[in-house]
Simulated assay, not measured.
Amino acid sequence: MGTHEILVLGAGYAGMSAAIQLAARAGRREGVRVTVVNPHERFTERMRLHMTGTGQHLAEFSIPQLLQGTGAAFVRGWVTAIDADARTVRVDDARVLRYDTMVYALGSEADTSAVPGVDDYAYTLNSAQDAELLADRLARLGDGGTVVVAGSGLTGIESAAEIAERHPGLDVVLLGRDEPGASMHPKVAAYLRAALGRLGVRVRGGVEVVKVLPDAVELAGGETVAAGTVLWTSGTRVSPLAAAAGLRVDGRGRIVTDPALRSVSHPQVYAVGDAAAIRQGFGIMHGTCQGGMPTGVHAALSILRALEGKEPKPFRFGYYHTPVSLGRNDAVVQFTHPDDSPRRIYLTGRLAVRYKETVTAAPWPTFARMKKMPASGAFWPRGGRFTRTRAAR
């Protein structure tokens, strides 16, 4: 019997969680080879890119270095095509990798295609490189310049607050269809909006940006808002690779999975994180690190069960909290029901800052613990933290 090839495409929060679990428990197993494919050797802390975007320097983590000693291999390159029937992946249009089992973890990014001018004139936080370009632009903008943050979701809120705090001479305008914190408890939403006001952020909800111009954004109805810089955080999209490969996808291009996180059309493919349409009792999960890392862990354990001739178990998940930073000295934490609806419990101010910094700290220590994990254990998320439990085997 030949080697069973496991490919992990993407090394974000979900992909790395799957890769480290697999490497720790199967990387040295005879007849099994784990390979991680990612465009960069550096791990990107997506949850902290709003900090990078304002010129703050974060620790850099090397994916190949973490994989050392596990038996897993690392391939640096862009995935350009997948042949789901032949079970091959093309990297940089030059290399072809074969797989028996794939973990598809290519994530999502800000959708810059839906609104004219975004690709040409707006900045994004899709990568560390994009965030560094924004930081350089903000440093050169000068006092009195206007920054429009388009999108009033969590990324937009955190970015607007961070920019206003780090660059108090800039005029920061947050635009979105909804008021910031609209899905939170009314008291939490009120605190959040007051905090943005204290930082000098001008908030306009109930508006839609329909075009980005070289020096402004145009709203539905024809009004324009002057902008020296536009940061686009409205909407997300996933790679078209899954749909092009013939995998069954939903209306947003995410791979439709069964309860064990296998593709319903190609069960040798497991989909995790933002790239997957994972149904739970409350509906389809939305993309967050809180949900992404557990899907990666579960996919790895499902693959290990399948290698042992066992049936994978269904994935079950419930949300626990929504932490939102408001600069470096303020935050809110909305505790939630499993379906992500708000509870009446919340934290604000310095206590919320400490809580958020604890539960959203760099995942590297968690990955390192996974790497050293004995075969009988697994790390599962509990309220944003990872604790050691018995493996779901």
Rank of each mutant, 00 (worst) to 15 (best):
T358Y: 12
G383C: 10
H298K: 07
V272I: 11
S263W: 04
P259S: 05
D83R: 02
G273T: 03
D250A: 03
M102R: 02
G206L: 03
G383V: 07
V118M: 02
L351S: 14
A245M: 12
G383R: 05
R254F: 08
G246S: 01
A368N: 06
G273P: 03
E311Q: 15
V353G: 01
A110E: 08
N38Y: 00
S62H: 09
V75Q: 06
Y346C: 05
I6T: 06
L174K: 01
R390Q: 14
A378L: 11
V79F: 01
K356A: 07
R140Q: 15
C289S: 13
E311A: 15
G309Q: 13
V264C: 04
R382P: 00
G27D: 04
A19H: 00
A26M: 06
P168N: 11
V297I: 15
V269I: 14
L133D: 11
R140E: 13
L213R: 11
V32P: 00
E60L: 11
G251F: 08
T224E: 13
Y320G: 02
L49K: 00
G235N: 03
L326R: 03
A299P: 04
G349T: 09
H321D: 14
G142P: 01
M184A: 08
G71I: 08
E158W: 09
S159Q: 07
P314I: 06
A161S: 10
G377T: 13
L125H: 03
S265N: 07
E218L: 06
G151R: 02
A150M: 09
R369M: 14
T80I: 09
R344V: 12
R202P: 00
E162I: 07
P381C: 09
Q21W: 10
R354Y: 14
V212Q: 04
T358R: 14
R262V: 05
A128G: 15
E158D: 13
W364Q: 12
V238E: 04
E357Y: 11
M102K: 06
K211I: 00
L170H: 08
G142K: 05
D215T: 14
V37M: 09
R202S: 13
G181S: 07
V203A: 07
R140G: 10
R393G: 12
G151V: 10
L49M: 04
